[in-house]
Design a protein around this nucleic acid. Structure first.
Length: 858
RNA sequence: GCCCGGGUGGCGGAAUGGCAGACGCGGCGGUCUCAAAAACCGCUACCGAAAGGUGUGCGGGUUCGAAUCCCGCUCCGGGCACCA
């Protein structure tokens, strides 16, 4: 017998697979399609353990799916634009492409060394002009459809990265990439109007049954839909006189989800950035303090802002508005707790029902009018039937934000209040009637800021012409190529590169300047999975027929950190391309697996600074790729965090080695290394053989089921159980005895084949080597074989051991025939616990066939 | 504050209404060996000498039966956050 030596077999089989083009995709196969995809990596260096885990899951799904009879598309590529390449280029005085392509080569070699089954002919590299030209093409399609906008507004600026960021890329006030504090700047930037799709992006989450609930929840929160109403307040003078026919300048609109609380509005607040604020206070005594507050709020950093629970600051503007529901005069304040870019940037303050307004009212001594109460509130009985205002002050220590009953609310008194309450509906209806309100919906989602002030990205295909304005680069002039002769280390940028900047206007032919911003890398990753379906197309990003045939992705696998970013943007792209007539489906990813992080043995994140990084290369060098793969899979459920420890890896290497020996023994080639130990008891030996037959069927069923649900850890546990049964069997029968008996021969061959096939997706080299050499199929590959079948009937034992419970506590066990009648089972159970039942009345006997008997006794 | 997860042996975990701790790691004991390693076998939730009892974060409930379902807490992790 040849001992198991991964270091010899793995490189040899990898070379064989490559020579045979074993994982090339078959187009137009009669088999049903399955698109298995892992999020493509950023080429930041060599792969780390997180990559090993992510891509191993994908490889198991791909290989298993092939064996199950699917035509599998399993491609790989690189998300190759981005800042790290630029930083490396500056450091090494080279070009970002050099660093990027070197890392791609390193990672590709590591992926091959792990035995991943990709169709390398379909590789997509995002910084390749043959790919990014189509990203530009898609940009033009978006532009045609009115989904591209260039506008000036306050944006997130990362000083360290020297570029603006999308909202989604700011994590608690810090840059997602470098963790620097983000600043607000007023800049003119390019946007994709993702908000046009906010409702559909929210609604279609319901279609995504194969997505983890938490990811859908996070997206729903991020989109943040609120139903409410816009309510118009009219500016009035200090005596409360408002113009009878107000013009646009006389109206301030607020968005509210709680129109039912309008009677409790005792002041009114504008955001410091509110557009009309200057005009309201210009030339008054209030101008100076208002200006001071506005300046102070600008200085608050994004990180501080993100901390929440900050002290609120505000000043009175000297102006008043009229509350449309009751005609009351309400003072207008400016305060830093109002968010400028949500709703209208103005809010009606109801301190009795809103904690923020309550805190502000307490601080500046503004009235708190109770207009909504719980029935158990001591105030409720006295305000129950009051129509006019009686109480205008309360001794509460916080607002009453829950649902309740409206009081002191004129005709609405007595109605239920709250979001979507009858009270709210009645008030909105009344406001609509008088032309002062309108039902509306607000989203938290902002448009996607896609322009970046960096070199290493996809150039935005636009030209600035002094006569024609900002115009698109015509399709036939794509791609707008990044200039290769650029010295980033010397501070050169696209904007200073004259050869790039200077061009002619595609409309009038006059001299013009190119747009020098590039696109967010997330635009590259929003459609690469479509490109894989038709990667060499030089006429279009992809042929719709091919994309529609392969898409949507059946199983997508990647990190939870993309729960919003990449996954939301990709859903948006898919919907827009569908509306362009290029796709006939709504959602790109049918099933999503978000893998948990790989941490060190103490549960710490692996990082260079902590010095706890585990190198996949070293692990593969010491134990072989198959053991690393299997150990990773066995560590726990894929979506949970994994604590990497080398003991588990060593254990897995032993298991592969033991199983190798068992397969050899079953195949009759173990020789001296046979596990046979001599079984003195022939009757027991027969039982061991019968058990092996049952286990062979049961375990195939269990492993199939587990793979279907991505439960890789329990699949391996089940294979270990089959291995344990095999071990018992091999100890019980000598190789000679087995060789002499046709029944044994058949069983041995079958179990050997089952073991090898079950392991094939997990340990592909180990399995293929055994398949080709020990099981006698030279030149063929186990990975092209059909998955083993099983017979659930054959998995059943003819006897069953049942637990006998008395009042739910196990008191005894009985062994009965599997087909024993309920009556017989009951009798056996009662007999087994007769001692416990002595002197007690049996009230009831519950028989659960095949499992247990519960006797209820008093 | 709101929204999601989660809490099971020394450790990773298994069991989604039916014998809690599958499978593995670690530990202990054994076989083999001059010895050790490797390999193989057995034991391994806790208390107890045993009989027996206790046990899935805590407290209640539903059920013949609850880690699993319901109610109330608590702790840990994640997301969002002055979003009106």
């Amino acid at each position: 017998m040849k001992p198991y030596n991964p270091h010899e077999i793995e490189p040899r089989l990898q070379a064989q697979w490559e020579a045979d083009d074993a994982y090339a995709v078959v187009e137009d196969s009669p088999r049903p399609k399955k698109y298995v995809l892992e999020m493509f990596p950023y080429p930041s260096g060599d792969i780390h353990m997180g990559h090993v885990s992510n891509y191993t899951y994908g490889d198991v799904v791909a290989r298993y799916s092939t064996m199950r009879g699917f035509d599998v598309l399993h491609p790989m590529g690189w998300d190759a634009f981005g800042l790290p390449a630029e930083n490396a280029a500056i450091k090494h005085h080279s070009h970002p492409a050099t660093w990027t392509y070197q890392n791609i080569d390193t990672q590709r070699a590591s992926f091959k060394r792990m035995g991943f089954s990709y169709d390398w002919d379909r590789t997509v590299v995002a910084c390749d002009p043959e790919y990014y030209r189509w990203g530009q093409w898609i940009f033009l399609k978006f532009w045609e459809r009115g989904l591209v906008e260039r506008r000036n507004s306050p944006v997130n600026w990362c000083p360290d990265c020297g570029t603006v960021l999308a909202n989604e890329q700011v994590i608690e006030g810090r840059c997602w990439r470098c963790d620097s504090e983000v600043e607000k700047r007023d800049l003119t930037q390019w946007y994709y109007k993702i908000t046009d799709y906010a409702q559909e992006l929210l609604d279609d989450l319901d279609q995504l049954e194969g997505w983890p609930e938490r990811v859908k929840q996070q997206q729903a929160n991020w989109i943040g839909r609120s139903e409410g109403a816009n309510v118009d307040f009219i500016l009035c003078d200090a005596e409360g006189n408002a113009p009878a026919e107000p013009g646009a300048d006389d109206i301030i609109t607020v968005f509210t989800t709680r129109a039912d609380t309008l009677f409790g509005c005792s002041f009114f607040v504008l955001a410091p950035e509110y557009a009309g604020l200057d005009a309201l206070v210009a030339g008054t005594d209030y101008e100076a303090p208002v200006r001071e507050l506005v300046e102070a709020s600008k200085k608050v950093s994004a990180v501080e802002r993100a901390m929440g629970d900050r002290e609120k600051h505000g000043v009175f503007t000297g102006r008043y508005v009229v509350n449309p529901i009751n005609g009351e005069k309400v003072p207008v304040w400016v305060a830093d707790y109002v968010v400028a870019d949500y709703g209208t940037g103005a809010v009606m303050a109801v301190p009795c029902g809103d904690q923020r307004d309550f805190e502000f009212a307490r601080k500046y001594d503004l009235p708190i009018v109770p207009i909504i109460l719980g029935e158990d509130d001591p105030l409720y009985p006295q305000l129950k039937d009051e129509q006019g205002r009686v109480v205008t002050e309360v001794d509460w220590d916080k607002a009453y934000a829950a649902e309740g009953i409206l009081v002191q609310s004129g005709p609405y008194t007595g109605l239920a209040g709250g979001k979507h309450s009858p009270g709210e509906e009645a008030v909105v209806a009344a406001l609509e009637e008088m032309g002062r309100g309108k039902r509306t919906v607000e989203f938290r989602l902002r448009d996607w800021l896609i322009s970046r002030q960096r070199y290493w990205g996809n150039p935005i295909p636009a030209v600035h012409c002094p006569d024609c304005g900002v115009v698109p680069v015509p399709e036939d002039q794509l791609p707008v190529r990044l200039p290769e002769d650029i010295d980033l280390a010397a501070g050169e940028t696209l904007a200073t590169h004259e050869g790039f900047v200077n061009t002619t206007c595609p409309v009038c032919g006059g001299p013009a300047k190119r747009e020098t911003d590039t696109m967010d890398t997330f635009t590259c990753s929003s459609w690469y999975y479509m490109r894989y379906t038709d990667p060499h197309n030089d006429q279009a990003p992809f042929d719709p027929a091919r994309a529609n045939a392969w898409m949507p992705v059946d199983q997508y696998i990647g990190g939870i950190e993309h729960a919003i970013l990449h996954l939301l943007y990709s859903r948006f792209f898919t919907k827009v391309l569908r509306d362009c007539g290029m796709l006939d489906f709504d959602e790109p990813f049918t099933n999503l697996l978000c893998q948990g992080m790989v941490l060190d043995a103490n549960g710490e994140v692996m990082s260079k600074s902590k010095g706890n990084v585990v190198s996949p290369e070293e692990m593969v060098r010491d134990y072989g790729a198959d053991s690393v793969r299997a150990a990773m899979l066995f560590m726990g459920p894929p979506d949970k965090e994994k604590l990497w420890n080398e003991d588990g890896l060593a254990g897995m290497a032993k298991f592969l080695s033991r199983l190798w020996r068992q397969v050899n023994d079953l195949a009759g080639v173990a020789g001296e290394e046979s596990l046979f130990e001599a079984a003195p008891d022939p009757e027991a030996a027969v039982k061991v053989a019968q058990k092996l037959v049952r286990e062979r069927h049961r375990v195939v069923g269990k492993v199939s089921d587990d793979f279907d649900r991505n439960n890789f850890n329990t699949a391996i546990a089940a294979i270990m159980e089959l291995s344990n049964a095999t071990g018992e069997y091999l100890r019980a029968f000598s190789p000679e005895a087995r060789a002499a008996c046709p029944d044994h021969q058949a069983l041995d061959a079958e179990v050997a084949e089952v073991l090898v096939k079950l392991m094939a997706p997990i340990a592909p080299h180990w399995a293929d080597e055994l398949w080709q050499t020990v099981l006698g199929h030279p030149g063929s590959s186990v990975h092209a074989q059909p998955w083993p079948a099983f017979d659930p009937e054959a998995a059943k034992a003819d006897e069953a051991e049942l637990a006998v419970q008395v009042n739910g506590k196990v008191k005894a066990k009985v062994t009965v025939a599997a087909d024993a009648s309920e009556e017989a089972v009951r009798a056996a159970a009662l007999a087994a616990v007769s001692r416990v039942l002595e002197g007690r009345d049996v009230k009831k006997v519950v028989v659960v066939p095949g499992r247990l008997v519960n006797i209820v006794a008093k």
